[in-house]
Simulated scan of single mutants.
Amino acid sequence: MAILVTGGLGYIGSHTVVELLNNGFDVVIVDDLSNSERFILKNIEEITGKKPVFYPFDLKRKELLNQVFEAHQIDGCINFAAYKAVGESQEKPIDYYENNLFSLINILQEFKARDISNFIFSSSCTVYGQADVMPIDENTPLKMPESVYGKTKQMGEEILIDFAKAYQRKISLLRYFNPIGAHPTAKIGELPVGVPYNLVPYVMQTAAGVREKLNIWGNDYPTVDGTAVRDYIYVVDLAKAHVAALKRLMEMEPEKTVIDTYNLGTGKGSSVLEVVKAFERANNVEIPYQICERREGDITIAYANADKAERELNWKSETSLEDALKTTWEWQKYLDSRN
């Protein structure tokens, strides 16, 4: 069975490709390399002993996407192709709307024309905005997200729900919290372009001396230490959830409307300062930091109730925060060895 993985050389995408290959799926990757590099493809092959098919182009190019579907019998899609930085999305809103939504619509046009089902969407906890109650479960009311990035994820979900209902298709919306870490081989991991917007890559680069200090955006939140709280989930655990969700859809009868929604997280919130201290303990390094003004688009606290995923997908997060942060540091050392 061939699974199309868009953004498959990116951070979460590459880890999911590894899990798909290890589970016997054939994989076709489309990635424009805007947030990844070609060496990841080689490293995926080294990890798995299998080489996925790779097409390096932008999904907004409909004619090239059509050629992929002509060349392969696609049985499903896991869509990671999206710009993903909360802060950047506030600065470049039109770029985010164009990239994140037009690419999704182009894939769905091919699914519609060829009567394909089984679509996994890389969504985000940002669709909940600042939830009123913790932990957040799938019944938590959606709010207008604080960031343009979050808005594109919420709109993407709405597009997919309408698609599934209109054409009797099977979809799974995976709302995950904050992915961290790298593969235990240290051969794939997060590759932020420029200055990282996410916490852990910034911590990693500060520890490596790439950045002079870590910027902590606000210490006046109503939390345990004044810094924002998030649910940090190990990326390999997260990748395994995508495979479990895909298998569930494929086991269901065809020509049936299925709209599954799952929160993917650890169920535990950690503050920014708690993550910094955990990184220091896990890797025996010191992280210099400075407190800055709050960043537009950030919320105060978010952590998951992932009980539904455990019940229906037989999945749960298994890796501790410190163990995940150890893999991050090994990945940074691997990157340093390449330079």
Rank of each mutant, 00 (worst) to 15 (best):
S103P: 03
I120L: 15
A241W: 07
K42P: 00
A182W: 10
N283Y: 14
E190T: 12
F25P: 00
Q332S: 08
I107M: 14
D225N: 07
G209E: 01
K326R: 15
A113L: 11
S270V: 13
S89E: 03
A131I: 02
L174R: 04
I105H: 09
V210R: 09
K60I: 14
A324S: 13
Y176N: 05
T257Q: 10
L313V: 13
G150Q: 04
Y11N: 06
V86T: 11
F111T: 04
K92M: 11
T126P: 00
V68F: 08
F279N: 01
I159K: 06
V30E: 04
Y202H: 14
V68P: 10
F80L: 01
E37P: 01
K42M: 10
R38S: 12
V243F: 11
T257H: 08
A164H: 05
I116K: 06
H72F: 15
Y97M: 13
G129A: 13
E251I: 02
K60W: 08
F54M: 08
V276S: 05
A304S: 15
F121Y: 15
M204W: 08
E91C: 06
P52L: 07
P141Q: 10
S147I: 08
R248F: 14
G267C: 05
P192K: 09
S317W: 03
N198F: 15
S124G: 04
A82M: 06
D260M: 08
L160K: 04
Y83H: 12
M155P: 01
N66Q: 15
V272M: 09
P93A: 07
L325N: 03
A166Q: 15
V27C: 11
A278I: 04
V195S: 06
L238D: 00
V86C: 03
I120V: 11
M134V: 01
G150H: 05
D115L: 04
T227E: 02
T223I: 03
S271R: 04
F279P: 01
N339M: 12
Y234N: 00
D58Q: 08
K51L: 09
K165W: 03
K247H: 09
A207W: 09
T126Q: 06
T16F: 09
K333Y: 01
K153D: 07
G189M: 01
K165I: 12
L174N: 09
G156V: 11
N339K: 13
G10Q: 06
K84M: 07
V133Y: 10
D220W: 02
T185L: 07
K308Y: 11
T327R: 01
D58E: 10
C77L: 14
V200S: 02
K143V: 04
V224R: 13
D220R: 06
T227R: 00
E98Q: 13
G129R: 07
R311W: 15
G181T: 03
A164Q: 07
Y128N: 14
F163E: 03
